[in-house]
Amino acid sequence: MNHVLYVRLLDLACGAFLLAGVLVLWRRDLAAIVRLFAAQGVALGCLVAVLGVDAGDPEVVGLAVGIGLLRAVALPWLLRRAMTAGGAGRETDPRVNVAASLMVAALLALLAYAVTRPVVALDPAPAVRAVPVALTVVLIGFFVLVTRRRALSQVVGFLLVDNGITAVAFLTTSGVPLIVELGVSLDVLLAVLVLQVLTARMRAAFGDTDLDDLRELRD
C-alpha cells in the first residue's frame, strides 16, 4: 500500500470511529445507539485492517477480522437481545442534557489532545498521531457511563471505553501480545454477557432498567 493511500484510509477510519462515538451522545433512541456502536465496531475493524495491511502482518489482519466480528456483530447482537427483552427504548432524561453533553465532548477532545502530547512526541508516525482520536472516544465512553440513566446506555458507555482502548493499542504498537488481546476480548464479551443477565434480573426485580432506582445501598 502506498503511503498516501495508507494515511488517507487511516484518517478516514479514525474519523468514522470518532464520529460514531460522538453521535452516541447525540441520539436518545437506544436502538440507534446500538446501531452506532456497531458502526463504530466496523470502523475499528477497518482501522486495524489498514494498519495490518500496511505492516504486512497477516496476524494483525486476522485480528482485525476477529475484532470486527466481535464488536460489530456479536456485541451489538447481545445488546439488541437485551433490548428486545423489554424495557423502554429511549434514554428519556440523561443527567446532562444533550446539547451540553455535545459541548462536553468537544472539551474532551481537547483534553485528549493535551494529555496525549507525550505519546505523540515519542513517535510522530501517522498512526500514533491519531491516538488523541482514540482517547477522545475513551473519554466520551466514560462520560456516557456517568451521565446516562439506562442500563443499556451504560453498557454502551463501557464498550465505547473498551473500543477506544483497543484503538489506542493498535495505533501505538499494532496491538498488545496476541494472548493478551485474546484474553481482553474474551473478558469484554463475558462482561457484557454478565451485564445482560443482570439487566434481565434488574427488570424482574425493579420492573425497569432506570439506574436511578439503584439507590437502596448507600450510606
Binding site: V119, A169, L198, E216
Partner: peptide, 28 residues
C-alpha cells in the same frame, strides 16, 4: 442485583483504565 451491577460496571471500567496504562507502557 444492585450491588452486582455497580460492582461489574465500576470494576470493569476502573480496570479498563489500567489496561490503557498497560497499552501505553507497552508502547514505551
Amino acid at each position: 442485583t444492585e450491588a452486582a451491577w455497580k460492582y461489574v460496571v465500576i470494576c470493569s471500567t476502573g480496570i479498563a483504565l489500567a489496561f490503557l496504562g498497560i497499552v501505553l507502557l507497552h508502547f514505551a
